[in-house]
Amino acid sequence: MLTTRPFGPYVAPAMAEPLFTPEEQKKFDADIADLLSRYPEDRKSAAMLPALRLLQEMKGWLPPEGMKLVASRLGATPERAYEVASFYVMYHLKKPGKYVVDVCTNLSCSLWGAEKMLAYLEQKLGLKAGEANERFTLRETECLASCGTAPCLQINEDHHESLTRAKVDEIFDKLP
């Protein structure tokens, strides 16, 4: 049977589970209110970056329902939220692995072996840069302002620097 959509705005199907638990909802509401207090009243949408960050910290990524919620709280369209989320590399539009590993391979780091370190990690984690599994998302990233302590990487935004093979092994083998 041919199904046609009625005219009017697209309504996304309801999610199987609600986005937040009641406790999470409370935290989200309080934190959004705090963020909005930092901007002029007619400029609520200025809080877009921190609000998306808040959502990501709570959910681990930016689910579409969540982006819609952020947008509505900020008086912005969902498209605006998506535009911002897709512009900045630190936002996850898909659910990443438990650990997001960002390896700098820019000039100063490469001069201290970053490409070799990345190759070692690809082998160790069984992933190519740009790939992900449940446990890891492995990415090549740009300069992390750690050039004097190269090479470096970040795991879920925690910074690790002056890395040797032994240090990398220790860090990754200790991950819970």
Binding site: N106, L107, S108, E142, C143, A145, S146, C147, G148
Partner: peptide, 11 residues
């Protein structure tokens, strides 16, 4: 924003 490759002072 300190993102210029080679720069790590403001940090």
């Amino acid at each position: 924003d300190e993102s210029e490759p080679g720069t790590f002072k403001d940090r």
